[in-house]
Design a protein around this nucleic acid. Structure first.
Lengths: 218, 218
DNA sequence: ATTCTTTAGGGGAAAATCCCCCTTTTTAAT
DNA sequence: ATTAAAAAGGGGGATTTTCCCCTAAAGAAT
């Protein structure tokens, strides 16, 4: 590509030595990268942005005292929705990943990756709005199969159909009619699913199903 | 890479013309691909495998009469766990994707992708055990987030608190106690919210609230 | 004074949940 | 092959919870 635009970046990390090193590294790995601002915690960056700072991307450390990366990200996404956010972290677990994606990060890197991966992530976020790795997707897939709530119970097709209908305003009598089964059978499904999903009410079941993407909310 | 091993493939689709076309296409796009078996539904493939057929990969259509792709995948993963499964589908929604990943598909493609993407998917599954696309990961990430905003009626603080608690497994009596109000007041809130949100049941109210970002699903 | 909002009460029907039971089919263990 | 357990579908009936209709008082706003 010719005539490539500079990518203006802010770096936020509470450890001064690491932050300076990261700023230097970023500017060395690609001449398009211009680090035009540094901050030692999330609130400092937010103050800068509110005072008029313009950047394309933010490289944000997750573990910081005030605000941490997660909370910073949520505020940034609410107030500067076009800002690309790359989160750096030592944490490697699925739960952290999911929390960060929910907060709206555009990319997520472990601190021990090579500089080439960092370059790739920054370019990708700038150009596509996201940076996904197979490792990350694999974690999401694993999280789907074994959710935080414990082992995902086996739900068969009839049970799934019942859950979908339980998430509507149909009474169980109406659901039975729709599924061409007796109300008693529907009650049997309800009972079995309550046990499997460890819930005790229709609302509990439906919320479990939504939380675990068994049904869609549309 | 030199001395590349053939990749033996089975193709399963209930529409004969499409299946034949797909077999030809697969064998044209890469000389390593050897389609050594065809089936018109899931059960037929399972019978073949149980009769001794050996393949590396299965290209499986989702919509088939007996067994469909989803059920076939579950049985295949249980009984032939090393088999790579690439699912083809016209469905594009997050919930279907999630169901398929849970069933254990190693890759997932929309039927209207280019042959190059099909080749890449087959090679990737054979060599890495999975094929992920940014589109797919984007859907997973999107599924993690709270849903898009919709039109909201006026909801005051007490009403919002009630809705949050209505989304739990507490009975209205318990909610009344928790809010230090009488059950009759809670019933008044329920009634007023049903009118405002145009619903007629607790499940309806809670689903409306989730859909419209009034409460979160965590 | 009138109207709206918040809180609360009574009564009763409909719906959900639970507990006991049964039969048939399928699956897994021996 | 046989047997036992689990799954699927279903019954009767009691209790609990939800939903609906009606009413009213107190306080705030117009």
């Amino acid at each position: 590509m010719t005539d490539e635009k500079n990518i203006e970046i802010a770096v936020v990390d509470d450890h001064s030595l690491f932050r300076k090193g990261l700023v230097n590294l970023i500017q060395q790995i690609n001449p398009r990268f211009k680090v035009i601002s540094e901050a030692s915690h999330g609130q400092e960056l937010i103050d800068q942005l509110q005072a008029g700072l313009k950047v394309d991307l933010v490289v944000l450390d997750l573990d910081m005292p005030r605000l941490d990366g997660h909370d910073t990200c949520k505020i940034l996404k609410r107030n500067f929705s076009d800002l690309g956010i790359l989160m750096l972290t030592m944490k490697d677990d699925e739960t952290s990943l999911i929390r960060l994606l929910r907060a709206g990060v555009n990319g997520y890197l472990n601190k021990d990756v090579e500089p080439e991966e960092l370059e790739l992530a920054l370019i990708s976020i700038f150009e596509n709005g996201f940076h996904y790795t197979d490792a990350m997707t694999g974690k999401l897939v694993n999280a789907l199969k074994d959710p935080a709530e414990g082992k995902m119970p086996e739900i068969n097709d009839q049970e799934l159909k019942f859950i979908e209908l339980a998430g509507t305003e149909l009474t169980y009598k109406e659901i039975a009619s729709k599924m061409n089964l007796s109300e008693k059978t529907i009650d049997g499904y309800r009972s079995r699913l309550f046990d499997k999903c460890e819930v005790k009410s229709r609302v509990g079941l439906v919320m479990f199903a939504v939380r675990n993407h068994l049904i869609s909310i549309e």
